[in-house]
Amino acid sequence: MTLSARFLKIGPARLFVHVCVLLIVIIWLIPTLGIFVSAVRDKDQIVVSGWWTAFAGSTRTVAARLGTADQQKQEGATYVISGNLLEGQDGRSLKAFGTRIQQPSAYQAGETANLGEGLSLQVNEDGTYRYMKNAAFTDDDAGRRVYVAVSTPPEFTLQNYKTVLTGEGIGQSFINSLTVTIPATIIPILIAAFAAYALSWMEFPGRALLIALVVGLIVVPLQMSLIPLLRLYNMVGSAFDVPSKTYPGIWLAHTAFGMPLAIFLLRAYIAGLPKEIIESARVDGASDFEIFVRIVLPLSFPALASFAIFQFLWVWNDLLVAMVFLGTDRQHLVLTGALNALLGSRGGNWEILTASAFVTIVVPLLVFFGLQRYLVRGLLAGSVKGG
């Protein structure tokens, strides 16, 4: 079947949906692509041109000075000062030049500019120049400032990443973020899985009330519960002489904030598992723990993976909870906190900021693309049940 025939078979409605999805994907990818390209560009090129021109090179205007009077040579009746304005800058070419800041590109490369009072200047594309006068140069004539438009070929480097990971503290913050995120993702999944199984397949008084409570806790804003939780945490720490600003504290905080959604998603999936499998296992003498470990957990992997994506991304991108429970000292600062600090101290260094930003998003991207095939299956769990 040809491509056109396939499009006709899709139908206009589905084709419209596919086109809209494609446009959304492209719009989301453009900023990520821009960050990646800018992070490997030379810092001087980032300042003068956008990332979309990275493969076409860039042109910027720089100031230079011509030679001094003691460098002049007499050629017949003309005195000449010569040299190269691009000396030591291999691969670059000169497009235009000028003698006034208001008109830095008044003359094209190779053109001879008449500067008046017997002075003329010729600057070639390779940077060589001839500064000429019909009389001997004086100190006032020589050493003149000129402005040249220099074309630079594309330059890519990994030095930006090296600077970020070794000199800006991002490497330590990267480890801190992993230390916070991995346990804060695993702990709520384990606890919520047990709770979801109990709310789905175990009969006990108050089960319906607990389910309603879990659904209600989902809509409670984090900011509303943050201060009471912090006060409780400090009280417990003072009572048992436990130091504040520790990793177990932030693990428990993220576990508390993520638990309602985790129980809700996992219960929807586990409740939709075939009832015959659970009943057959009980007839064979399996306990609830054995049913949960050997049957429910393996069958619930799509739901576990879907929540793991949400929890990992939320904890990894978190700044507020990390600053409250870990503080802002360099030994405990997470990646988002370090990037926020760079915005204040290195706000003009785009090469540092883009490299830091890409380091921040690369792990969530890997997690998402590694588990995204389970995402839709986990989110749609329980919405449709077989007869």
Rank of each mutant, 00 (worst) to 15 (best):
T255R: 08
R14V: 13
D126A: 09
L333W: 02
I295M: 13
K385S: 13
R92E: 10
T32A: 14
S4H: 10
G118D: 09
P183Y: 07
V376W: 00
A303Y: 05
F369N: 10
L115M: 09
P205N: 07
G57K: 08
I101T: 13
P31W: 09
I175P: 01
G83K: 05
D241F: 05
A381K: 05
T179N: 12
D288K: 10
K162M: 06
V17T: 13
A39Q: 03
K95E: 15
W51T: 00
Y129D: 04
A196E: 00
S225I: 15
V296C: 06
T157L: 06
P12E: 03
G337V: 01
D139M: 10
V180F: 04
T360L: 13
L232N: 13
G258N: 15
L297G: 04
W316F: 00
Y129S: 06
D139W: 08
T163E: 11
F97V: 01
T53L: 11
A106E: 12
T68P: 02
V40R: 03
G110S: 12
D126F: 12
W52H: 15
R14C: 07
G11V: 11
G327D: 06
G237P: 01
G67Y: 07
R144D: 03
T68M: 14
A193M: 13
E155V: 03
T354W: 01
A106R: 09
A54S: 12
K162W: 12
R207K: 15
F156Y: 14
W350T: 09
P364W: 02
V80C: 02
K133Q: 14
L343I: 14
A195G: 11
T68Y: 10
A381N: 09
V80H: 05
I186E: 01
G91Q: 06
P205W: 11
L265V: 15
N160A: 10
R130A: 13
R231S: 06
K162D: 09
G249I: 05
L222W: 09
G50W: 06
K9V: 02
N114H: 08
P154V: 04
Q311T: 10
H254P: 02
A5N: 14
I352E: 01
F264M: 08
A113E: 04
A106Q: 11
N234K: 02
V242G: 02
R6P: 00
I263P: 00
I278E: 11
L266A: 04
Y131V: 03
S49F: 00
G272C: 05
T78Y: 08
D284Q: 12
K385F: 05
L380W: 01
A5E: 14
Q172P: 00
T185H: 07
I189W: 03
A198V: 11
A106V: 01
G272T: 01
M132T: 11
G91I: 04
G258E: 07
E111V: 10
Q159H: 10
F240D: 04
G249N: 07
A109H: 07
I263L: 03
R346G: 04
G386L: 14
R267A: 07
A212E: 10
V283E: 12
L371W: 03
V123F: 01
R130E: 14
I250F: 03
G348Y: 12
S287K: 13
E276L: 07
Q172R: 14
E155P: 00
I187R: 09
I250V: 15
V146M: 06
E155D: 13
Y161T: 04
L265W: 01
Q372W: 00
V148F: 02
W251M: 02
V376R: 06
V321D: 00
V367I: 14
R14W: 13
I277G: 00
I227P: 04
